[in-house]
Design a binder for these strands. Structure first.
Lengths: 204, 204
DNA sequence: ATTTTGTTTGACCAAATGGTCAATCGGACG
DNA sequence: CGTCCGATTGACCATTTGGTCAAACAAAAT
């Protein structure tokens, strides 16, 4: 397997199939609970063939976590200090909710990793993520100081956006079971509810 | 092992040690990721000795989930239709936050179970939990109709209380890493923040 | 057509895992 | 003291698991 040279069609297809299968299995079972046999099965490949494309179970997991961080941090990065404060924060919440809807498996993979004590992602959290959060928290603090939004604790505001949006991906099963019929899509009402919540919270 | 007859001191002590150890391991690794050897190790017992007290890995997990539901539902049950609406809901949030602080492992055990698709707790969610949530949602709907709190979607209000409070237990590692120093206790600020949030959201 | 390079797999391995069991230990009690 | 019964464990077992490897297969490249 050569990762520097551009991948052939067959490499691209199989790597993608493996990562997709692994995402499915890891996000549901966690790292230790997942097995290469399950992943191989879902991917439609033999176990030795998996290991032809990835050096180990660890390597597959690492590849997924790597991808994940991009997807995860982009919406936060997009918060613009020069934009309208309430609009910026609401837009961030909406992007994050959209992520939960479109990438629930990624959200659960992340949740699993954190639940396990973040052994394989601690560095990124302490480094990249913390730096970005601190930067955006500073912006929020300025907005508060300028009286453009109500006085809120910046870090906890960000945590609350994470908690409220990721809940719909991570606890999807529970949300749907409690709401009743399987056909229910909780997202439209969730978005309305969260917009109200944050508008009232942030109104200066 | 005889569960009908009152346990001897030694039985009580060892069962408790096993359940405590199992809670630790299951909540971090999930059901599949946990091993009897780990649990035995943490409990300070031999593996065969574990299986003298519990019939199987499954049985230990079941025992934990059973306990869990009580602890989990009581604060919700305590919401009083005749009390002051905002005070009742704030008190519920506070009790739930307290639970996250005092029983973070239980919270993570629950989170793990839901992430895995709730295979061993689906019935309880569809039954007991859903019934209780629906009952309390009806109370909230009445409060809204009576103009005692702002118009909010009752189920999503409850979800938001769960999401916001459980986040501090389930994502504890992340919260502490992002906030910085290890010595930080995020709960006091979290409580202040959440009180503000829900007061503003619910104000009629 | 043949070589070369990349892809796939059956067979295999050592370690880990859930679970069993006969044998032993230890304390309470006659 | 000896008996009894609950508590404990070393040895063991079948299966699962992450990983290896040589051999077979396929697809380009010559």
């Amino acid at each position: 397997m050569n990762r520097t040279r551009p991948q052939s069609r067959i490499q691209a297809r199989n790597s993608a199939a493996i990562l997709d299968a692994a995402l499915q299995v890891f996000s549901q079972q966690g790292f230790r609970g997942a097995t290469l046999d399950q992943i191989a099965d879902v991917a439609g490949l033999s176990k030795p063939n998996l290991l032809y494309y990835f050096a180990s179970k660890e390597a597959i997991h690492q590849a997924l976590l790597g991808q994940l961080l991009h997807i995860w941090l982009d919406p936060l990065r997009a918060i613009d200090a020069t934009g309208d404060p309430v609009a910026e924060l609401l837009a961030y919440m909406r992007r994050k909710l959209q992520l939960s809807r479109e990438y629930p498996r990624e959200s659960r993979l992340f949740a699993n990793e954190i639940l396990q004590g973040a052994p394989r992602i601690e560095a990124a959290i302490k480094g990249e993520l913390k730096a970005l959060v601190d930067a955006k928290a500073a912006i929020i603090r300025d907005w508060v100081a300028a009286g453009k939004i109500a006085a809120v604790h910046p870090h906890h505001l960000i945590f609350s956006i994470w908690a409220l949006t990721q809940h719909y991906a991570d606890f999807d099963v529970q949300v749907r079971l409690v709401l009743g019929g399987e056909a229910v899509d909780p997202y439209p009402e969730a978005q309305t509810y969260l917009e109200t919540l944050f508008r009232k919270l942030l109104a200066p």
